[in-house]
Design a protein around this nucleic acid. Structure first.
Lengths: 224, 224
DNA sequence: CTACGGTTTGTTGCATGCAAGACCATCCGT
DNA sequence: ACGGATGGTCTTGCATGCAACAAACCGTAG
């Protein structure tokens, strides 16, 4: 398994459909709850229903769509409770990743993380929120990769996909002062990782995720 | 999602195939690495290739089989490294579950866990390893359910399926003295949970999983 | 206006046929 | 005997047709 995607998928047309549909759902190009007709998708992609059907089946197992037998297929919308659960998992996995990374010592990912923070500092300084959002995602990705645990990474990607996190990051960072605080928290985590203090790194990382979640929830409240 | 199974699957024949195949793989009724022919399975179940095919696709996403395009479908065999990774995740999730359960206070699952330990004590006392193995699985299941986090439970079940844990438990418990120690560790965890000491409960639970893993690895070594 | 029945439409579930690729054994040439 | 080409056979991937079911829609009776 490579994360949540189908390994050598590019050659198989069902693989292409999977990647495209996943991209659309995660980016929010399709409204949550919207129906996905096999036939319509098949025609749009210029293929038969079969590969589309198999793609949707996989996306269902990944938790991105829901197939109601003989009714239709719909983009899933996480309930408030599920969002809370997903963040609990995010906190768990990223905290563990920080600890594992700290235990590994100085691996290439550390350098990439330091470089990431240098860029992030600059982005925050010039108030470039879009760029900073990208860097935040990269930071978390590097942390997970640095943990060097394929299963952890796979489950993490699945979670983030269900959250459609790429969209949420922006909401979270739109809270005043959040980017600066977020950047500081990243610095602290990386310091503890470099110092090989796994326990503290995990604790601080979890606090960071909690803070990020609260900023997000606040942002969601105000946007509704 | 209800764990890793397909919700209302009983009526759809692909759902029946999924459940049956998953059961076989987890129970070890099929040798790891063995090829699974769509046609053969279809004939055995008395259906066409289509539902079998869709079932295998889902099992692939769950990590139980591997579909090599135009070659065949095979039962996956976790590598040594993957087993280590899976146990790292198990430790993580069960530790978190212990902490979450402790935070929830006295919920029904606590009573069930205490009842479970009473039976487990008896099973250990009369050296009934088979019964104790069942109770161990039930203990961990109750812990996860008690955490009251659906996502955590879903990911946990997926992990356990990949490990084919029901088989491994026996190997682990075949180590001399392991059942008694395991039982004691369970008691300690539950005490801390009841005392609402989440941090300690998580720590001890993780130590318990590590110990269980070491017993398993020792058992695997000697059996090879 | 409301409640109920029948129909119509849309959806997915399953069966089947064909095609493309991978693998293997065999045969031929050296 | 050995190496390479070649054919055959097995596998899955995809296209298509039909059937079963669900939901909406409309007309009708009360």
């Amino acid at each position: 398994m490579n994360g949540s995607s189908n390994g050598s998928s590019s050659r198989l047309i069902q693989g292409q459909v999977i990647e495209e549909m996943r991209r659309r759902i995660i980016k929010g190009a399709i409204n949550p709850g919207a129906p996905l007709s096999e036939l319509a998708l098949a025609e749009e992609f210029g293929v038969s229903r079969t590969p589309v059907r198999e793609a949707l089946k996989q996306l269902q197992t990944e938790g991105l769509v829901e197939i109601r037998p003989r009714v239709g297929t719909f983009v899933t919308t996480p309930s408030r409770r599920e969002i809370t659960e997903l963040f609990e998992m995010k906190e768990l996995l990223e905290g563990a990743a920080a600890r594992l990374l700290a235990q590994r010592g100085r691996v290439p990912e550390i350098d990439l993380l330091e470089e990431n923070l240098r860029e992030a500092d600059a982005a925050v300084a010039r108030d470039d929120r879009a760029r900073y959002a990208q860097l935040v995602e990269e930071f978390h990705d590097l942390l997970i990769q640095g943990a060097d645990n394929g299963k952890l990474e796979a489950h993490y990607r699945m979670l983030m996909n269900q959250l459609a996190y790429s969209r949420l990051v922006n909401t979270s960072l739109s809270q005043p002062g959040r980017p600066l605080q977020s950047d500081r928290e990243h610095h602290l985590v990386l310091e503890l990782v470099v110092a090989k203090d796994g326990d503290s790194a995990e604790r601080v990382m979890r606090e960071h995720v909690r803070a990020s979640r609260q900023a997000l929830m606040a942002g969601l409240q105000s946007s509704l």
